[in-house]
């Protein structure tokens, strides 16, 4: 696969992942993650060991499954109704890769991108909330398809008090 084709494949994955998150399509979004997925939203820069401090989100696969199960009940006041959202993703760069020209299972790509997410807090205040930040994805090829093994989100506002963040960032 050429570098150009590889970038297109990665972009297509990020755009799909973003759209499923925007539309709170929990089952389809969860189908994109690997069995060892780590989903991390630190309360500051993403440095050091996540387990050493308190994060906004620090989900291993089991905890992520609990989060998704909770959201799917439709009984979480914090996401009843779900927040209408749209995010823009830009500045996509493949930072690192273990791929060696041919595509094979187990190949990993570390991908950096910037985003701006617009969220309507439709549960109570009806404020439009703007969430800018940077995402570092770790994508892995599993059964020929890209899957998400890690998603690390560094919010521009990470060190400030946060409103509800109970949707998929």
């Amino acid at each position: 696969m050429s570098a150009e084709d590889q970038l297109r494949e990665i972009e297509a994955f990020l755009f799909l992942e973003a759209r499923l998150a925007d539309e709170s399509r929990y089952d389809e979004w969860e189908a994109l993650v690997t069995d060892d997925m780590h989903y991390w939203v630190p309360a500051g820069p993403a440095v050091g060991q996540p387990s050493d401090s308190l994060s906004y989100v620090n989900d291993n696969r089991a905890r992520l499954a609990t989060r998704m199960r909770q959201l799917r009940t439709g009984k979480r006041h914090a996401q009843t109704p779900v927040s209408p959202m749209r995010r823009l993703i830009t500045n996509i760069e493949v930072l690192d890769s273990t791929a060696t020209g041919t595509t094979s299972d187990g190949d990993e790509y570390r991908v950096g991108s910037n985003f701006v997410l617009y969220e309507l807090a439709a549960q109570a205040t009806h404020q439009l909330r703007i969430w800018p930040g940077r995402t570092t994805h770790t994508l892995r090829r599993v059964d020929g398809e890209l899957r998400m093994a890690a998603k690390v989100i560094e919010l521009v506002t990470a060190t400030e008090p946060q409103p509800n963040m109970t949707f998929l960032l």
């Binding site: 906004y56 979480r76 006041h77 914090a78 509800n164 963040m165 109970t166």
Partner: peptide
């Protein structure tokens, strides 16, 4: 936390 399972529900209420 703001993405947690208790306080966000309280906050919306």
């Amino acid at each position: 936390g703001p993405a947690g399972f208790i306080v966000p529900d309280d906050a919306v209420t």
